[in-house]
């Protein structure tokens, strides 16, 4: 179903125009990379604050609430440019295992943020005077690792090592990328 949607998307006029554009695609790609600084760059400092490694004079609630608008701004920019990048190359991206792994990591990152915010709203008031609980340190470290993973797997989407049109691939790759292997490709004459 999603594959059909991607194929349909790839045949729309604007998708083809974006894919074939000489300058627009690179500009969107550059904006996508630059928004890393807004999104992950500001998020890093909240994580560092939670770990007691930066801005320790500020309370966690102040650090979080003051930088969150910029993190959200960066995230919005990333999603907007990211959707356009997907729109330009839908089918290949949909079947790219790095893209799929990246989405999975983003999901985990989102869950981590949700768990942190839930914990902060429950007991965050006490953190400012007392020591920060170990579980918060862990969430901050997990956050740094996950978003670094998002950057790495995002960069790897550019490589076609595991693309469906490059066969033979190991079974797990074809499974993870939901490649539609035609009989003609499987029979090696």
């Amino acid at each position: 179903m999603l594959l059909e949607f991607s194929i349909w998307l790839s045949e729309t006029e604007w998708s083809i125009a974006l894919h074939e554009s000489l300058y627009l695609y690179p500009w969107i790609e550059s904006a996508h990379v630059l928004s890393i600084c807004f999104f992950i760059g500001t998020l890093i400092f909240v994580d560092l604050r939670l770990m007691g490694l930066a801005f320790n004079k500020l309370s966690i609630s102040e650090m979080n609430s003051k930088t969150l608008p910029w993190t959200i701004f960066g995230f919005g920019l990333m999603v907007l440019t990211g959707l356009l990048l997907f729109y330009a190359i839908p089918v290949r991206t949909y079947q790219n295992i790095f893209f799929r792994f990246k989405l999975f990591l983003i999901l985990l990152g989102g869950i981590n943020i949700f768990l942190f915010h839930r914990q902060m709203s429950k007991e965050g008031g006490k953190w400012d005077e007392e020591n920060i609980p170990r579980s918060v340190h862990i969430k901050a470290s997990v956050s740094l690792v996950l978003w670094a993973g998002v950057i790495i797997s995002g960069r790897m989407i550019a490589y076609n090592w595991f693309d469906c049109d490059r066969q033979p691939q190991p079974d797990w790759v074809n499974w993870a990328a939901s490649c539609m292997i035609e009989l003609s490709q499987m029979e090696d004459f």
Binding site: I36, C37, I40, I44, F45, L58, T67
Partner: peptide
């Protein structure tokens, strides 16, 4: 990829400082 992680750290550090200079973040400090 590691170069890009460096970008996130440097870019974030410069942004935090510059946004403060512009009066857009952590103005109470």
């Amino acid at each position: 990829s590691v170069h890009l992680i460096g970008l996130a750290i440097l870019g974030g550090s410069i942004l935090m400082g510059d946004l403060r200079l512009l009066g857009f973040v952590l103005n109470s400090r």
